[in-house]
Simulated scan of single mutants.
Amino acid sequence: MKYNNDQVRRRDRLLTEARAREIVYEAEYAVLSMIDEDGMPYAIPVNHVWDCSSCIYVHCAPEGTKLKAIAKHPNVCLCIVGEVNLLPSKFTTEYESVVIRGLAKVGLNEEERMRALRLLINKLSPEFKQLGEKYAQASFHRTEIIKIEVSEFSGKCKTVHKTN
């Protein structure tokens, strides 16, 4: 995964690569954005898991808008939000965010699909691994996995300095 902040306008708000990777790894959900089959923008929240290399996995039903969109336009964007702190009296928000760009693929072999499901279980339900394994096996036939091969990612944050 290439960390590339060249397109971030506010150079004073760059997130370190190390923190960006933590957010990708730890965040519980992201917003997957794509172009639907009619050429319109389409974004939807998803659970994701990073393989700690160059791929992000997302699970979904074996049919639907996401899969139709990816079949026609496989380039996608994933936005992940880290820490957020609303500051109403200052009319601003402190935040961290990571934007990932990549190529989405479906139709993975059974071994990779099951590996992705296990990664999701380990991330989102670590205290229920045995039960998660049974559930994954039982629902495997009605689960699709989207693999996002990450081309690059960037990170941005805003911190408000406290004044006395």
Rank of each mutant, 00 (worst) to 15 (best):
N4M: 04
Q7D: 09
V8N: 01
R10S: 03
R10M: 06
R11M: 06
D12N: 11
L14A: 01
L14W: 02
L15K: 08
A18I: 05
A18K: 12
A18M: 05
R19T: 08
R19D: 02
R19A: 06
A20N: 05
E22V: 10
V24W: 01
Y25A: 09
E26R: 11
E26W: 05
E26A: 10
A27V: 00
Y29D: 04
A30M: 06
L32H: 04
I35N: 04
E37H: 13
E37A: 13
D38F: 11
M40N: 12
P41L: 02
Y42T: 06
V46K: 01
W50M: 01
W50F: 08
C52D: 08
C52H: 13
C55W: 04
I56Q: 00
V58A: 01
H59V: 11
A61K: 13
E63V: 14
G64L: 10
K66Y: 01
K66C: 01
L67K: 01
L67E: 00
P74C: 02
V76S: 03
C77S: 12
L78T: 03
C79V: 14
C79W: 04
N85R: 14
L86N: 10
L86I: 13
S89A: 15
K90L: 14
T92Q: 09
E96Y: 13
S97E: 06
V99E: 05
V99C: 07
G102C: 04
A104D: 02
V106H: 07
G107W: 09
G107A: 08
N109K: 08
E110R: 13
E110G: 05
E110S: 11
E112K: 10
R113H: 08
R115I: 06
R118S: 03
R118E: 05
L119W: 04
L120A: 07
L120Q: 04
I121C: 14
I121H: 05
L124S: 08
S125A: 14
P126I: 01
Q130P: 03
L131M: 11
G132M: 05
G132W: 03
K134R: 14
Q137H: 14
A138V: 03
S139Q: 12
F140L: 09
H141I: 11
R142F: 11
I145C: 13
I146A: 08
I148F: 03
S151N: 15
S151K: 15
K158N: 09
K158W: 03
T159A: 12
V160D: 06
H161A: 15
T163W: 15
T163D: 15
N164R: 15
